[in-house]
C-alpha cells in the first residue's frame, strides 16, 4: 500500500497523539488525580499506527491492558478516552471501564483487556462474524509477549487456522511480561509458534513505522482474500514500567535512555520523511503543536468533568433484566 502525503501526516499525527497522551498521563498520574492504575504504551506507537492504518470501522481489533495506543490508532475519541481514564461520566465507557477497558465497538475497537490473553479468542469471533456475514472485514488481535504464553492465544492460533479466519495476530514483544523477561519466559520463537499452526509470520522492527505498515498490509490483505490468519512478531520496547509506579528495577542501566535516544519511532519517522522530502519539518511541527493543544484540552476537560451519578452504578449490566 502506497502512502500518500495525507497518509503520512495521519500516521505521524496518530503516533504523536499516542506519545503525548501517554507522556501526559505519566505526569498526571503522579499527581494522584487518576484512579486505579495505567499501563503506558509510549515507545510502541509505530506498531498500533502501522497496523491500524489499514483498518476501517468494519474491521475489529482486540487490545491489551496496555491499550491506549490501539484505541487512538483505531479512531477512538481522545477526549472521551481521557474522560474515561479519569472515571468521568462522559468517558467512552461512562466511567465504568477505565484505562484497562476502554472500548468503542462502533469504531471496531473491542476493548482494552484486563486479562492477559483475553483478546485472541474474541478476535476469532469477530473474524467469524466477518466470514459468516461476508462483511469483508478483518480482525486483529494485539497481544504481548506475556500473552503469547497463554493457552487462549495458542488455542486461537489453532482455531483461526483451521477455520481460515480473516484474522491477524500482532505480537507486540516489548521484552517484558511485567518484570519477567521474554528471553526467560518464551520458549522457542513467536514465528516458530506460528509455523506450528501453519500460519505465515513476519518479524518486524517495531520502531520502524514503515516496516510495521508493510508487514501488516500483507497480512491483512491475505486475511481479506480469504487465505487465513497470519502472525506478525513486532519487536519493540516500552519507555515506562509495566504500570505507572513500577520502579523498573529489572531493567538494565540506561536502557530506556538509549531507547529514547536511538530508536524513537517518531524521530525515525520524522528523519525518514523529511530526508526523502515527502513532508516538510514545519508540517510535522504543526502537528506537534496541534496535538499538544488537543491533549492539553482533553486533560483540562477531564479534570473538570463530572463523575458518573449514583444511578449509573446500576445501569448497563443487561440490555433488559
Amino acid at each position: 500500500m502506497q502512502l500518500n502525503r495525507e497518509d503520512l501526516l495521519r500516521a505521524y499525527r496518530t503516533m504523536r497523539l499516542i506519545r503525548d497522551f501517554e507522556e501526559r498521563l505519566h505526569v498526571e498520574f503522579a499527581t494522584g488525580e487518576i484512579p486505579g492504575f495505567v499501563h503506558l504504551y509510549a515507545g510502541e506507537e509505530a506498531s498500533a499506527a502501522g497496523v491500524c492504518m489499514h483498518l476501517g470501522d468494519k474491521d475489529h481489533i482486540a487490545s491489551t491492558h496496555r491499550g491506549h495506543g490501539h484505541c487512538i490508532a483505531k479512531g477512538c475519541d481522545v477526549s472521551g478516552m481521557m474522560n474515561e481514564i479519569y472515571g468521568r461520566k462522559d468517558g467512552l465507557c461512562g466511567g465504568k471501564g477505565g484505562s484497562m477497558h476502554i472500548a468503542d465497538i462502533s469504531k471496531g475497537m473491542l476493548g482494552a483487556n484486563g486479562i492477559v490473553g483475553g483478546g485472541p479468542p474474541l478476535i476469532c469471533g469477530a473474524a467469524l462474524t466477518a466470514k459468516v456475514l461476508k462483511t469483508g472485514g478483518v480482525a486483529i488481535a494485539f497481544l504481548g509477549d506475556g500473552a503469547s504464553n497463554q493457552g487462549t492465544t495458542l488455542e486461537s492460533y489453532n482455531l483461526a487456522s483451521i477455520w481460515k479466519l480473516p484474522a491477524v495476530f500482532v505480537v507486540e514483544d516489548n521484552g517484558y511480561a511485567e518484570s519477567t523477561a521474554a528471553s526467560y519466559a518464551v520458549a522457542g520463537s513467536q514465528s516458530d509458534r506460528a509455523k506450528g499452526f501453519g500460519m505465515p509470520s513476519q518479524v518486524v522492527d517495531g520502531f520502524d513505522f514503515f516496516a510495521v505498515h508493510e508487514a501488516a498490509g500483507a497480512a491483512i490483505e491475505r486475511a481479506r482474500a480469504g487465505e487465513g490468519p497470519s502472525l506478525i512478531h513486532v519487536q519493540l520496547s516500552r519507555y515506562y514500567g509495566h504500570f505507572e509506579g513500577d520502579g523498573m528495577t529489572y531493567r538494565g542501566p540506561g536502557e530506556v535512555d538509549r531507547l529514547r535516544a536511538d530508536v524513537d519511532c517518531l524521530k525515525r519517522f520524522r528523519t525518514k520523511v523529511t530526508e526523502a522530502a515527502l513532508l516538510e519539518a514545519s508540517e510535522l511541527d504543526a502537528i506537534d503543536r496541534a496535538v499538544a493543544d488537543q491533549i492539553d484540552t482533553s486533560v483540562r476537560t477531564a479534570k473538570s468533568a463530572p463523575p458518573p451519578t449514583e444511578a449509573d452504578l446500576l445501569t448497563d449490566v443487561y440490555v433488559a433484566y
Binding site: A62, L110, G118, I123, C124, G125, A126, L128, T129
Partner: peptide, 28 residues
C-alpha cells in the same frame, strides 16, 4: 457447516470466539 461449526476440543478459543462473534453481529 458454515452455520453449524464443529470446533476443536478448545473451549477457551471457541467460547471466547462465540463472545467475540456475539459482540460483532452474530447470535451464536
Amino acid at each position: 457447516r458454515e452455520r453449524v461449526l464443529d470446533t476443536p476440543l478448545s473451549e477457551s478459543a471457541y467460547i471466547g470466539a462465540a463472545a467475540g462473534a456475539a459482540a460483532t453481529g452474530l447470535r451464536p
